[in-house]
């Protein structure tokens, strides 16, 4: 939805001929994707199509068996997940992975980890550089808390929040990294209509306000077709279609994958 006109030339994320096998199972086979900067790029497909595997390779959790992954034309295929966070990749998880024992605020402060530098000695002393750094980053975290309307939950333990709120806190933690590429793995799964609408609003706001490139995995077709600039369809580990939402919706192979060949 966002203005990709002037930026569309630049490729934010390039997935080049990537494959991944687990034993004999071909999870992802020779998939290539170009995600233009500043866009919302959705990956859809039936269960077991390899969407999450693909996302895991982008965030560095798996390494592809073949092919390469480029972020801003820089090859990150062999980089570890924590190094990729430094390069500006952040993500949320399908099954929420918050730090249960910590408050919402501390969860978000952890998102600032890569931007902070206090070492062991500074932490032991605290008063001085470490405290100044905490305050600086607290300010940024408070901006995100305002943005996601989490102010009243600040001090709540993350593990005690309702499902929809935990999803939102996880988005907040990813935003605290100040990512340039945000990977969202089913951010709206298990939500009711109202919560979905709210989450869609946040995703669009992130894209528009911060210009963050977003790669989205989602099952709700209505949402995907409404907010995506581009859609790619995976089926059984292979990319079967790619393009703007309307073109993908009309693609016969996509209809076949979703509804079966003999639907007529």
């Amino acid at each position: 939805m966002s203005a990709q006109s002037e930026e569309s030339a630049r490729t934010k994320l390039k997935i080049d001929q990537v494959s991944k096998n687990f034993g004999g199972v071909k999870a992802v086979t020779q998939v290539s994707l170009d995600v233009p900067e500043g866009t919302i790029f959705s990956i859809i497909g039936p269960n077991g199509a390899g969407k999450t595997t693909l996302l895991n390779m982008v965030s560095g959790f798996y390494h592809p068996d073949e092919g390469s992954i480029l972020l801003d034309s820089q090859d990150v295929t062999r980089r570890k997940p924590n190094e990729r966070a430094r390069l500006g990749i952040a993500r949320t998880f399908q099954n929420i992975a918050l730090f249960q024992g910590l408050s919402v605020l501390e969860n978000l402060m952890l998102g600032r980890h890569v931007h902070m530098t206090s070492g062991v000695l500074a932490s032991f002393l605290y008063w001085g550089p470490a405290q100044r750094e905490e305050v600086v980053h607290r300010r940024r975290v408070e901006e995100i808390i305002d943005f996601l309307k989490l102010a009243d939950l600040r001090q709540q333990p993350a593990g005690e929040l309702a499902y929809g709120l935990r999803k939102r806190v996880e988005l907040g933690r990813a935003l605290a990294v100040d990512p340039t590429l945000l990977l969202l793995d089913e951010p709206m799964a298990g939500m009711n209509q109202e919560e979905k609408e709210e989450m869609v609003r946040y995703v669009l706001d992130v894209n528009e306000e911060f210009g963050t490139t977003i790669v989205l995995i989602e099952h709700d077709m209505g949402v995907v077709m409404d907010i995506s600039d581009y859609v790619a369809v995976l089926d059984q580990g292979e990319k079967i279609a790619e393009g703007v939402p309307d073109a993908v919706r009309a693609d016969p192979t996509v209809i076949e994958a979703y509804l079966g060949a003999d639907h007529e």
Binding site: K80, P81, A97, Q100, L102
Partner: peptide, 17 residues
């Protein structure tokens, strides 16, 4: 905080850097 993150969710800890 990083220590606690590793205790609670080591995968998520790595993902956020």
């Amino acid at each position: 905080r990083a220590f606690i993150a590793i205790r609670d969710q080591d995968i998520a800890a790595e993902i956020i850097g």
